[in-house]
């Protein structure tokens, strides 16, 4: 799972550079917020991942 996690980013970058993400289905996160392109989706991935880094840091602190 760790390997898949580590490799996933490289695969996405390679596929992005290969032009694979041409059609993107708009994602409505909330009625006020939507992701309209793959670029916006990747931006959201960063937010989502950083939230979980924050959660992981707090869990590590709890464990001492």
């Amino acid at each position: 799972m760790k390997d898949r996690f580590k490799n996933q980013m490289n695969e996405i970058v390679a596929d992005y550079q290969a032009g694979k993400f041409t059609d993107f289905n708009k994602i409505e996160l909330t009625p006020e917020v939507s992701l309209d392109t793959i670029d916006e989706s990747l931006g959201f991935v960063i937010i989502h991942e950083s939230v979980h880094i924050g959660l992981a840091i707090a869990l590590k602190q709890r464990l001492g």
Partner: peptide, 29 residues
């Protein structure tokens, strides 16, 4: 600004754990 999004997300995570510690409901990601 792009880097700040990462930084702000990280602190959203910390805020979620502070809310959980108080027994408050969180909206989550």
């Amino acid at each position: 600004v792009a880097f700040h999004c990462f930084h702000e997300g990280l602190h959203i995570g910390k805020i979620l754990t502070l809310k959980e510690a108080m027994g408050l409901p969180v909206k989550g990601g």
